[in-house]
Design a protein around this nucleic acid. Structure first.
Lengths: 141, 141
DNA sequence: TATTGTTATACTCTATAACTATA
DNA sequence: TATAGTTATAGAGTATAACAATA
């Protein structure tokens, strides 16, 4: 358990260093990553995906817009909503993030025995299930 | 890799919920955890252990002192330094954190096959080594 | 009435730089 | 001179609450 938390912390530190060179924090990189993974969403949808408040999305998109990674476009049918779209720079950055992620995964896991990797994956899957159960329980009124 | 990041995120969310009930953020819980693990350290030492700036330690200890978890005592020989000491409430809280951590570990890993757990541990150890190597490389001038 | 996004406000964590008191 | 901790200042991320425009 403590080893998992340690690796988590080291991983976060290491990823943050690479992101800094792209002009991104971990949070902003996460936003771009999610934008790259779905059709241009509304801010409301982004708030749900990122599990933060709509107010927070306003601030994050403000920052990403000022630094040229995204654009706000009017929603085609709902005049209350805006859709968040990756700029050219944003799309290139997402591509870079993906290749960096793949390269890091190769560096980290490339040398591990296949059987260990499978057991690792199984254990992570089981952890995710347990954690989802815990959240579900505690979320009850 | 993405599964690891997902589990990391779920774990952090789940732990934060428990900590909130103790009146602690993750950062402050981390400070208490480290205080529980070593002789009363100076703020300088805490800054090194937590890998944050001394200025930041001032703020964190201010907050933990105001909420009654820790106390600042004068250093016995160096009049520049202060040592940070757990209060009664702080010591009880560390004990609670430890038992919560143990209980969560049991809930998360208790049902996993022994062989998988060993492979999981091996892979985490290897990850930690790789990540340390990566940091070392990039830290060179 | 309900929803989308904003403004207003506040708290936490983080960093750099300048300063004080002491080694 | 160097070190321990502080004050000053700034920026990022988060939240709640009140509000405007629109559905």
């Amino acid at each position: 358990m403590s080893q998992l938390l340690l690796v988590t912390s080291l991983l976060s530190t290491d990823m943050a260093r690479g992101l800094g060179e792209l002009g991104l924090s971990e949070t902003r990189a996460h936003v771009l990553w999610e934008l790259g993974a779905r059709e241009p969403p509304t801010q409301k949808r982004l708030a749900d995906v990122l599990k933060v408040t709509p107010r927070n999305v306003t601030a994050l998109i403000d920052a990403l817009e000022e630094t040229g990674f995204v654009r706000r476009d009017p929603h085609p049918t709902d005049r209350r909503a805006v859709v968040v779209v990756l700029s050219d720079k944003g799309r290139q950055t997402v591509a870079t993030l993906r290749s960096q992620m793949a390269s890091m995964a190769e560096q980290l896991f490339g040398a591990a025995p296949e059987a260990d990797l499978q057991a690792f994956g199984r254990t992570l899957d089981a952890l995710a299930v347990r954690l989802a159960e815990l959240s579900g329980q505690d979320a009850l009124p």
